[in-house]
Every structure is written in structure tokens, then in C-alpha cells.
Design a protein around this nucleic acid. Structure first.
Lengths: 195, 195
DNA sequence: CAAATTCACATACGTTTCGTATTTGAAATA
DNA sequence: TATTTCAAATACGAAACGTATGTGAATTTG
């Protein structure tokens, strides 16, 4: 590979890594691009060349984290006993992952506010896409009621991620986490077709 | 009432009204406080005197909208046939109200990102508080499974509002709204105790 | 192999915006 | 009428973003 492209790739990754840290710690609005770039030995020139603007950098960061979350959720869901348990396990995984301040601040709070609704994000392996796949499978198997797959996926992941926000904001996260998971499983069971 | 306090109250309301408009149209970050205040014949001096800072103004706006939403949801819920149908009606009402760009932008997107999790908002008659009340009533009646009231309320309202974001972001909101409502009702039914 | 060109990034600059510190002037009060 | 209060205005300083331009090493071309 040409040396120029090689170092550019490195710099892109350095910037994304620094942005993950800065956005998570200070929030999107308060994160200074001057500081951020200086931290990795670059200037804003590199940033605007690679990502267009500040939002572009956030989009790249969100995409990366979303990708990681989707992969992890899929792994966990695959280990469950059957597709239905897999869906529940995925949701539970989202709740737990969303306790990470980085996920919370960047993906759940600043992401939608700055980039718009997640359904419009480009990620192929996004959380939403993964959940929709699982729901579709369950629809074919007639395990769940005949509802819209997209809507169900959105409700599942939305409920899970929202529950996580609540858990994290509470005074004793460790205490309320099981309550959130219990309520989540209860509510999700409403999608089950009568057996 | 003393004239000074009277006009101050008027100015506060004018600023809040202007902020609702500006925040809804441009988003919190892009809304200029100079423009906003000039629109109602004031300067930023009035703003910083009354609300402390930009966040303070957003908090006041969010509080007002949240209050209006909770009242409306309660009204609609009260007309339903029984408390359980009332809960579903409330959720449906949230979905519909959240289609309003003002609610969406200010309460669902910028609100949590700038002010933190809704569970920490001061509103007494907030959406969350209203839903928690209804859930608590249903818990006493043993209509719903014995889950944590707070968690259930959060899941219900979270799912509803999240569904609304999805509906609004879709290409044909009118088409997907009924699907969202159907899926919401299905999922919520998971909270029902076996009869 | 030397000249030309590309391009990733740096630098310099202007604009906008927020928050504070200070001042003003009309209403309330004594 | 003199004094005090206080809601709002004004002036100021400190970022921060985005653009326009410069630069030098890597690549390409003749």
C-alpha cells in the first residue's frame, strides 16, 4: 500500500479514537476540536480534510461504536436457547452495553440529537438492523404476533436502550438493573403469539 | 400585583415562547440567543437575568412542554374504558404527540442531550410521573405483573416516544403510524398479568 | 532522473456566540 | 422628595468553528 494512504488511515483512526474519548467525557458540544486534534499530534486541518466537519467526525465515531454493539449483541443472542430467547438476550445485552458512559453519551444522547434518528444512520450492521433480522426470523416462525418487523425492532431496542438510560441515571444502578431487565422481559413477552 | 413583577412575568413568557419556536426550528445548539431575544424586543440581558444561561431557558421550555403533554395524556387516558385501556391510550397519545416537531426536537432530542436523563427533570406533572401513577394503580389492582413501577413506566413511555421518533423519521409517517401503535399495544400487553 | 503535480495536512483569519462584569433607569419605598 | 431596588441593557473578553490559502513530501509523468 502507498505510504501516503497508509498514514492517512492511521491518522483517521487516531482522530476517531481521540474523538471517542473527548465526546464521551465532555459531550459533543463541549468537545474542542483544537484540543482533540492536538492530543494526537495533529491540527484541525487533518480533521476537516478527513471528515468534512465536526458532525462528520461524530458520524464516524457513532458508526464504529454502533458496529461494535451490534456484533456483540449478535454473539450473545446466538448463544441463547432458541431465537426467542436470543431476542431477549440481545435486548438484555443492549441494556448492559448502554451502561457504558461512552455508549450512552455518544450513541444514545448526542448521536440522535446531532445526526438525527438512528433509522437514518448508514451502518449496515447496526443495532437496529440486527434486531430487525432477529424479529423477522421470529415472524416467519410465527413465534411472535404478526406485527411490523421494523416497528417491533424499534420498540425492542428503544425500550432496552431507554431502560439503560434510566438505570444509569438512577442513584443505585446496581440495584435497579435487575428490575429493568425483569420489566423488559415482561414487556417483550407481549410480542409472543399465544401458544 | 406590582407592575415590575408583572412585566417580568410577561417577558419570561415571551422569551419561553420565542425559545420554543427557535429551538424547535433550529435545534438547541444552532439557536442564537441574540436573535431569539431580539425577536421579542429584548436583549440577552433579560435572558441571563431570568434564566441564568442558555440551558436554563431550555429547561424552562422543556418543563412547559412536558407539563402540557402530561396533562393531555392524562385527559385522554381518563376517557378510556378502565385503567388498563387508559395506560394504552396514554401511550398512544404520547406517540401521536411526539409527531409534533417541537416535541421531538426539544423534548426527545435536545432535552436529554443537554439537560440529562428525563428522570432527573424537576417537573411534577411530567409524562414519566403520570405514567408511573397509572402503572402503580394497575399494580395495586394486580392487573399487571409484579414488576417495578418505575421501570415499567420508563419502558412504556420510552417505547412510545421512541416509536414516535421512528414514525416521524420514516418516509410515509401516515402509513407507519398505525403499525407503530399496533406493535406498541402488542408489546405493552406483555405487562398484563395472566387472567 | 528531473520536473510537475497531487494531496494530506498546517496555518492564518474572520465570524459567530456565549457568559460575565458593569451600568442604567424606572418602579417601589421611606 | 430622596433613596433604594432590580429588571434589563451595554460593553467586553474568550473560545470555537469553518474557510481560504500555503507547504512540503510522496507520487507520477515525460
Amino acid at each position: 500500500m502507498a505510504k501516503r494512504l497508509e498514514t492517512m488511515e492511521e491518522n483517521r483512526n487516531k482522530l476517531i479514537a481521540a474523538a471517542r474519548k473527548a465526546f464521551a467525557e465532555k459531550g459533543f458540544a463541549a468537545a474542542s476540536m483544537d484540543e482533540l486534534t492536538a492530543d494526537v499530534g495533529l491540527t484541525r486541518g487533518a480533521l476537516y480534510h478527513n471528515f468534512g466537519d465536526k458532525r462528520g467526525l461524530l458520524a464516524a465515531v457513532v458508526d464504529q461504536i454502533d458496529h461494535e454493539m451490534a456484533l456483540r449483541a449478535k454473539e450473545i443472542g446466538a448463544q441463547a436457547d432458541g431465537d426467542w430467547q436470543g431476542l431477549l438476550a440481545e435486548g438484555e445485552a443492549y441494556i448492559k452495553m448502554a451502561l457504558d458512559p461512552e455508549v450512552q453519551r455518544i450513541v444514545l444522547l448526542d448521536g440522535p440529537a446531532v445526526l438525527g434518528d438512528p433509522s437514518k444512520w448508514p451502518s449496515q450492521n447496526s443495532c437496529l438492523a440486527g434486531t430487525r433480522q432477529t424479529v423477522s426470523k421470529l415472524l416467519e416462525q410465527e413465534v411472535v404476533k404478526p406485527v411490523d418487523a421494523e416497528a417491533a425492532a424499534r420498540l425492542i431496542s428503544g425500550a432496552a436502550l431507554n431502560a439503560a438510560l434510566w438505570v444509569a441515571a438512577s442513584d443505585k444502578p446496581a440495584d435497579v438493573l435487575p428490575k429493568a431487565i425483569e420489566a423488559f422481559r415482561a414487556m417483550a413477552s407481549g410480542l409472543l403469539a399465544k401458544t
